[in-house]
Simulated assay, not measured.
Amino acid sequence: MFIALVHESLTVHQSPAVLQASAGKTVNLSCSFDNTQGSVANAMWTRAPGVVLDSHHPFYSGRLNVSFRDLLRKGEATLTLSELEKRDSGRYQCQISIHQGESGTGAGTELRMTGRNQSETGKKPAPIGCSARELLYQVAIALGLLLILGLAATLLLKRRRAPPPPQPRQRQPKGHGSWGAEESESVHYAEIKFQTPGRREHTSNHAQRR
């Protein structure tokens, strides 16, 4: 779409009317005019309200480039602005002056800075409902994780509080107790002596403790 503005007999066409760009990107603005004679022409770009764009200005240093005279002889003028910032938003106009005295100004291009990388005919922003659904999904996942962690913590606490299982009693081996030790240490024996006939039989029992 071309918009023409007649000023002092020179018609300057400038397009597009609106241009959207995101921060950090590069944009190219252009305008055209009738220069069939190939006369020497000068182009001056301004940003409303009438601020002249200068590549030597600290704000535009290293970011602003304009077309050369060879392109102007063909009736074209371009402006390249790189590393865009939010402050670059505004209406840019192309002013052309020809050596013969004719001059004219384009209708301008409105540069709009956006948060996303979108062109004028680019993608539309995502509907609000989609972002809301994604937020609900994230909340549901977070609640599920919290529930799982709570159950795991409850099971661990129950295991820690449960009494330990009873230990089986160990049987003492026979002969190794106190009573068995005393019996093993005591040895009883009987001694029987036989006397010849006519003598009184004498029997004695002796017990010797080791």
Score class of each variant (00 low, 15 high):
P164N: 04
Q95W: 12
G108R: 10
S97F: 00
I128F: 08
P125W: 10
K123Q: 13
L147T: 13
R159A: 12
R160E: 04
V52H: 10
V51A: 09
E102R: 12
K123G: 09
T80H: 01
E110D: 14
R112N: 13
K74Y: 01
S61A: 15
W45C: 05
L149H: 03
D54Q: 12
M44I: 06
P49A: 13
L53H: 05
G122Q: 14
P163N: 08
S119N: 13
N117L: 08
I128E: 15
K86P: 04
G150Y: 03
Q100L: 07
Q118T: 14
L84C: 04
L145D: 04
G75K: 04
L145P: 00
P166F: 00
H57V: 03
Q100W: 00
D88F: 12
F59R: 14
I148K: 00
R87K: 14
P125H: 06
G108I: 04
L111G: 05
R161M: 12
A107M: 04
R160H: 09
A153F: 04
G115R: 14
G144E: 06
E102M: 13
C94P: 05
R159S: 06
G101P: 02
D54N: 15
L72Y: 01
H56P: 00
H57N: 15
R159M: 11
G144Y: 11
P165W: 00
P125E: 13
Y137F: 14
P164D: 14
I128Y: 04
L81M: 06
S89Q: 15
W45S: 11
V52Q: 09
R160P: 00
T109H: 09
S97V: 10
V139E: 15
G150S: 11
L136C: 12
N65A: 08
P163W: 05
A142I: 06
L72V: 00
N42L: 12
L146I: 09
A43P: 02
K124G: 09
R91P: 00
L111M: 11
H99R: 14
R91T: 11
A162R: 15
F59P: 06
N117F: 01
G90Y: 05
P127Q: 07
G62A: 02
P166H: 02
G108E: 08
Q95N: 13
I128C: 02
S103C: 08
S67V: 02
T78P: 01
P127K: 10
C94D: 03
R159N: 10
K123W: 02
S82M: 04
L53R: 03
F59Y: 15
